[in-house]
C-alpha cells in the first residue's frame, strides 16, 4: 500500500476516488461558466484549455499541481463547497494562496471543512492515478492509496 506524507492545511479524514491531472487548474475559469449556475453542474470543470474539460470534480479526491488564474478563485471554491458540489478532498504539490484562501474561508465562514493537503512529491501524478481508491487524513497530512 502506497503512502505519502506531506502537510495538512485543513483537517478531516475521508476516502474516495482520485481524479488526477499534472496540469495546474484555473478554478475560476473552470467553475464560473454559465452551466455552473445549475447546482447539479456546479462542480463541473468547464475550462476549454484543460484536459479535465467537462469532468465533474464533485466528490472526487482531486490531485493536481496548484491553481492558476483569477483572484476570484477563493470565492469560487468557497461557494462550490457551500453548494455541496466540491471535491471530497484536495491534494496539491504546492499550496497556493488562492486555493488555500477558499478552503480557509469555508472553514471559518460556513463553517465547512474540505480536507486539504500539500504533498511536494515531484512524481505525484504517476504515483496516484485517476480511479485509485484513496484515503486522505488532513490532520496527519497523510495520503494512502487503498486500491
Amino acid at each position: 500500500m502506497k503512502e505519502f506524507k506531506g502537510r495538512g492545511i485543513i483537517g478531516g479524514r475521508v476516502q474516495g476516488k482520485a481524479l488526477v491531472t499534472a496540469h495546474p487548474l484555473n478554478l475560476t475559469s473552470g467553475l464560473s461558466k454559465p452551466l455552473n449556475l445549475f447546482n447539479r453542474l456546479a462542480g463541473v470543470y468547464y475550462d476549454r484549455h484543460h484536459e479535465l474539460y467537462k469532468q465533474d470534480l464533485f466528490d472526487r479526491i482531486l490531485v493536481f499541481p496548484q491553481t492558476i488564474g483569477s483572484t476570484f478563485t477563493g470565492m469560487v471554491v468557497l461557494e462550490t463547497i457551500r453548494r455541496g458540489r466540491a471535491p471530497k478532498a484536495i491534494i496539491v504539490q504546492s499550496a497556493d494562496p488562492l486555493l488555500a484562501s477558499g478552503l480557509i474561508l469555508a472553514e471559518v465562514w460556513l463553517p465547512r471543512k474540505v480536507p486539504f493537503l500539500e504533498i511536494p512529491e515531484p512524481d505525484l501524478f504517476n504515483l496516484i492515478r485517476t480511479g485509485d481508491l484513496v484515503e486522505v487524513d488532513g490532520d496527519a497530512g497523510v495520503v494512502k492509496i487503498l486500491g
Binding site: F72, S101, G102, L105
Partner: peptide, 9 residues
C-alpha cells in the same frame, strides 16, 4: 502584495 483572494481582500 500577495495574490489575495476575494473576501480575504
Amino acid at each position: 502584495t500577495n495574490r489575495n483572494s476575494v473576501m480575504i481582500d
